[in-house]
């Protein structure tokens, strides 16, 4: 979708995207020639259809608050029910341990390099990957996940 300032016959530029409000986005465009501003207000279905394409809505340089997909990943809210399941979908780095559960396993640290590699994989896979790798490390008596452990896990589990 593009917007044209009819009096100026000039393509309008995206200025800002308002944070989602009940599924609606406020997308502001302005004319670089005359400065006229207009806002496209989407309904929830229109927002959803665009988000389903897996794209960010907003200027390329926009901050996270100004985009429609706050995490940058359209699947960040996927698998909500599998958190804490046997697959280990809980992201132990970000989520507090549930109250009243079995005692937490020994904490495993991640080196910066290992964290960087974890960030390369889709966010919807990350929680179970983190938990699985930490379990793999614990089983080997290792309490720090570094690139060597990741490489060993790769040989053990992966292609």
């Amino acid at each position: 979708m593009k917007f044209l300032c009819v009096p100026c016959d000039t393509p309008m530029k995206l200025q800002s995207v308002g944070p989602p409000d009940r599924g609606s986005l406020s997308v502001v465009y302005s004319c670089p020639e005359c400065g006229y501003e207009m806002a496209m207000l989407t309904n929830a279905y229109e927002t959803q259809v665009v988000q389903s394409l897996g794209v960010r809505i907003g200027p390329a340089e926009a901050s996270g608050e100004a985009t429609a997909t706050a995490s940058g990943c359209p699947f960040s809210a996927m698998l909500p029910a599998s958190r804490g399941s046997g697959l280990g979908a809980r992201d132990s780095a970000n989520d507090p341990e549930p109250q009243g559960q079995v005692a937490a396993p020994v904490a495993v640290r991640w080196t910066a390099a290992a964290e960087a590699r974890l960030a390369n994989i889709p966010s919807f896979v990350r929680p179970m990957a983190r938990t699985g790798i930490e379990q793999f490390a614990r089983e080997r008596g290792v309490l720090e996940v570094d690139e060597q452990i990741l490489n060993e896990a790769r040989d053990f589990f992966g292609m």
């Binding site: 994989i121 896979v125 379990q135 793999f136 992966g158």
Partner: peptide, 16 residues
């Protein structure tokens, strides 16, 4: 079913 997805150097490693 219980396969662990391992982070590779650039992408995720396919379970086997």
């Amino acid at each position: 079913q219980g396969a662990v997805v391992v982070p590779g150097s650039r992408k995720a490693v396919l379970p086997r």
